[in-house]
């Protein structure tokens, strides 16, 4: 049994009167890929932001590698640097060239020397197939290239876990494949990933488990095959059917 990287326990989060997360608990083990699905407004993005404490939860605990991130004494910036985050709309640093987007964390956060950092950054660009785009600005890249660059930026920090928040939903359909390919190869290389996505082809081919969330709670959690063939809850089946219809099965 591999060790637990991420442990999420009874997370609650409200915005004003609206309780967005109502007690979320789950674990992610070393090398696992978990895919979170659920209707819009269910709190999936909020959950990811709670995990790396960009949005501190109101209640509950998060552990990363046994370190409690919800503990106020923890150096949260340091902890956060070991959790990658990939956003729906990329959020690349608009004023920095592709290479510098990858470099900046190594130099400003990890305090690495320029030369060593550059070698590493170039390596990460190669890993996502962007070595020839090193000196392009984000706005000069296609959506798919931008998202791959943002994955490289996350990878450069040598994260223990990468959070993906709908990484392909801002992309034109023909660009989704190249991003999923990168994610699939990461999963196969043993990267630990927590992915909010409705790309069921991706989920079926690499997810160890799918988590179905609705209205701030986890309705059901299990291996893709089980959820697709015999979901315990009627809602799970309905939702899976709906998104398979909507998104198809790309990324297989």
């Amino acid at each position: 049994m591999s060790e637990t990287i991420l442990k999420v326990q009874d997370i609650h989060k409200s915005y004003g009167d609206l309780e967005v997360l109502k007690g979320i608990s789950f674990e992610v083990k070393q090398g696992e890929t978990k895919v979170i699905i659920g209707p819009s407004g269910t709190g999936k993005s909020t959950l990811l932001r709670c995990i790396n404490q960009l949005t501190p939860p109101d209640k509950g605990c998060i552990w990363l590698n046994g370190v409690e991130l919800t503990d106020h004494k923890v150096d949260i910036n340091k902890a956060r640097s070991s959790i990658g985050m990939v956003f729906q709309d990329f959020n690349l640093f608009a004023h920095l060239k592709a290479l510098d987007n990858v470099l900046i964390g190594l130099i400003k956060v990890k305090k690495m020397e320029k030369q060593k950092a550059t070698e590493l950054a170039v390596e990460e660009l190669r890993r996502v197939g962007l070595e020839d785009k090193a000196s392009s600005y984000p706005a000069e890249l296609s959506g798919g290239q931008q998202q791959r660059l943002s994955i490289a930026r996350a990878l450069a920090m040598n994260p223990k876990l990468i959070l993906f928040d709908e990484p392909t939903s801002a992309l034109d359909p023909e660009l989704i494949g190249e991003v999923l390919e990168v994610m699939i190869s990461l999963a196969r290389e043993g990267m630990t990933m927590l992915v909010v996505s409705h790309e069921m082809g991706f989920a079926r081919s690499v997810a160890n488990e799918i988590i179905f969330m609705e209205n701030g709670v986890i309705i059901e959690e299990g291996p893709p095959r089980q959820l697709f063939s015999r979901p315990k809850h009627k809602r799970t089946g309905e939702f899976l059917n709906k998104i398979t219809e909507l998104y198809g099965e790309s990324g297989k």
């Binding site: 910036n77 340091k78 640097s81 608009a94 004023h95 930026r153």
Partner: peptide, 30 residues
Amino acid sequence: IKIGQMMAARSIGMNRFRAILHIILPQALR
């Protein structure tokens, strides 16, 4: 400047000060 720039900067481990200095201000000044 979109809020995502700050989030992305924080997500790679920058504190607020560094994020403002290295990510927000270079863009805002331009």
